[in-house]
Write a protein that binds this DNA or RNA. Structure first.
Lengths: 241, 241
DNA sequence: CACGGATTATGACTTAGATCAAATCATTTC
DNA sequence: GAAATGATTTGATCTAAGTCATAATCCGTG
């Protein structure tokens, strides 16, 4: 049946390119799908340590992560760097650049990664014709805003232990949503990058990991983390301020 | 001329309702303008201390501030409140609710305010037909994301003095962009709310205001602030970390 | 306009996390 | 695979900002 063909093509397009985020709720016509093809052309491999884009660079595309791991960070004039986020499969990066037309942060691959470049003018044009795409673009941007507010609460109000616990639980939840283990995963970033993200020094991060281990909450072996007591971590964030 | 009539109508629509943000770059047809009228109907007055919306409430509209002053804040389960932003004339609130369909934060008027309610489904529908509106919606959301990243840097990396200096300069810049004085303005929030926004305690805010005054950087009289040495404040943020 | 609850200012003291330092452990690189 | 470089852990201090306490001041309301 024609419907099935279309559906299959959609699945290919979406899974091919992590467009899941952008177009999962299906409801496309045939010619709309052809148009979507325009977007899937430009895949790109990014090696560990390589920049996907740099602050100040002209904005032309947003990027969907097919696989791998990225950090984004803003740099203050005096050189201080602050990590604003860690990003994995399915996440969209570069949305903060739409407003000014140039990127406001750096995006660096923390491991060998594959991304899908989505030219924003094409995407924007397309989304005029495809309500679902349009909707999802808004949804994704809105989600980022809401999540950033959670981070602001964390940076402004939580103490070091709570931040680390929230960080680990967030990672766990995101890995699990992508089909990986929720209790055992490899950190792709250094203690310093975790600290930068959480507003702490690397020594503090290290010390608290050790303490969590002593308390039986987690098992740490350098970058390998095992959550032994997720409810315990959750309790840490809530109760004892 | 017909063109002029349309232009005038547009100006009315926009200024009437702080839609400036949403549709300034003009280029509308007559019937599009009529559609825009749909949006301008619902104005609302909000008294000091009143909630515009509460966390958890069903999302249906975003809000443009015509006049007045708001704070938005997220509340943690244990009761801790964190102020995520202060908002004034022309600002758009409620964008973080699109993703989930319910509001993620509280919005409270800090003085007698007037807002314009923009039903999001209508706005969304309209923006499908009006590229300019569509573009500007993206721009506004993107700007908020980028700004939130700046705040994250502030909360994560700057010390108390720097945060206060950045805060005052940001307020100054925003007042001045709206035609008010850049050097003299009334704070509409308490020291505690400033502290909550900046990740500091109210005593610290108070102390640093006093110190700034001793150093001749500002003049404070309760809520009235006068910037005496804006370059000095800027230097504070940059140089001496 | 006087009362009472917020709000602000300031001092004395405490503390969580930063800083400094050193030792170990891991990973590149040649 | 040895050397070099980078990442992590842990300990010993230090300090910026938090906490606690008190007084002064400012509204808002009856």
């Amino acid at each position: 049946m024609k419907g099935n063909i279309i559906l299959n093509q959609l699945k290919v397009v979406c899974s091919l390119c992590s467009l899941r985020e952008l177009c999962l709720p299906i409801g496309f016509g045939a010619e709309e799908l052809q148009q979507l093809d325009v977007l899937t052309g430009s895949k790109r491999l990014v090696k560990r340590g390589e920049y996907l884009y740099r602050s100040g660079a002209k904005f032309s595309s947003i990027y969907a992560i097919r696989g791998g791991f990225f950090k984004t960070s803003v740099i203050h004039e005096d050189g201080r760097e602050h990590v604003t986020g860690f990003h994995m499969m399915g996440d969209i990066m570069g949305l903060d650049a739409i407003a000014t037309g140039s990127h406001a942060c750096d995006a660096v691959a923390l491991e060998y990664s594959e991304i899908c470049e989505l030219p924003f003018d094409k995407l924007s044009e397309l989304s005029m014709a495809m309500p679902v795409l349009h909707q999802n673009l808004h949804r994704i941007m809105s989600r980022e805003i809401a999540f950033d507010h959670e981070i602001m609460l964390m940076l402004g109000k939580m103490k070091a232990e709570e931040r680390l616990a929230a960080f680990l639980l967030n990672l766990s939840q995101r890995f699990s949503a992508r089909g990986y283990s929720a209790v055992s995963f490899q950190l792709r970033m250094t203690r310093e990058e975790i600290g930068s993200y959480l507003g702490l020094k690397l020594e503090t991060v290290s010390r608290i990991f050790s303490r969590f281990q002593e308390e039986g909450l987690i098992e740490v072996q350098k970058k390998l983390i095992e959550l032994k007591d997720a409810p315990g971590l959750k309790r840490l964030i809530r109760g004892l301020s």
